[in-house]
Amino acid sequence: MPEPILRLEAVGKHFGGVVVLEDVSFDVRAGSRHALIGPNGAGKTTLFNVISGVFPPDEGRVLLDGLDLAGVPSRRRIGMGMARSFQNIRLMPHLSVVENVMLGQHARPGLLRKLKPVGLLPKSRERDEALEVLDRFGLDAYRGQVVANLPYGIRKKIEVVRALMAEPRLLLLDEPAAGLNSTETAALRDFLMEVSARGVTLLVVEHDMPFVNSLCEHVTVMNFGRRIYDGPAAGAREDEAVLDAYLGTHHKKGASDAA
C-alpha cells in the first residue's frame, strides 16, 4: 500500500466549550477520489479549515506526504501541493476571470517571475497557461469578465480551475455541487474525473449523494465531530452507524439507499 498523501491522526478541535472535532483519523490515498460526508454540523468544513491551516488543531496531527503540518503557515501549504475551494464561492470580485485563475499561480516558486509585467505583455506563458486551462474546461468565453457578474455554476467551476492552477497534488473541494442543477452537476463530475485522471487526489465534502457515488470510490462519514465510517463508497450504504446518523436510530429497513 502506497504512502497516503494526507493522513489525519486523532484530530480534535473545540471552540470554547463546544467540541467540533474529536479523535478524527483517516488516510487519503494518493490518486484517490475521496468523499467526506455527514449531516450538517458534523464538522466537515472545520476539518477542511484545519487541513488547510486556517486554524490549528487542538489535538492530533495533520500529515501531508508524511510531513507534520503543525507550524506550517496556511499560505505555505498551497506551495506544498494542497489547494482548496470554498463552500461559499470566494473568488476575488474585482479581478477578471483570467486574473482570478492567474492568482492560482502565485504560490509557484521564483521571485523574478513575480516581477514580470504579465498584465502589460500581449502574450506571456502565465496568461497562455491560464487561457488554455479555461479553454479546456469550456470557460473561454468568460475570460475577460469581472467575476461578480457571472452565473453561480460558472463561478463554482472557475474556483476549481483557480485551485488547479497551483498544480496541486491534493485538491480539497468544499461542496462543489451545491447550488448546481443536474446538467451542471453532471458536467462538474466529468470535469473532476478529468482532473483525477491527471493524477490529482480529490478530497470532496458533499451532500449530493448521487454525485458522491458517481465520483468517489472511498468515503469517510462524520457525525457530531467524529468519524463514524471510513471505507469503500459502497460499504457506507450498508453501514449501521451511517444509517443511524442520516435516518435516526429508528430507521426502517429498505431506506438504506438514501445514504
Partner: peptide, 21 residues
C-alpha cells in the same frame, strides 16, 4: 505584475489570498 495582482487580491479577500499563497 503578479505582485500587483496579489495586492488586488489582498484588497478583495485577505483570508483567501493567504490560502492562495
Amino acid at each position: 505584475t503578479p505582485i500587483g495582482l496579489a495586492m488586488r487580491a489582498v484588497h478583495d479577500d485577505e483570508p483567501v489570498a493567504d490560502l492562495m499563497g
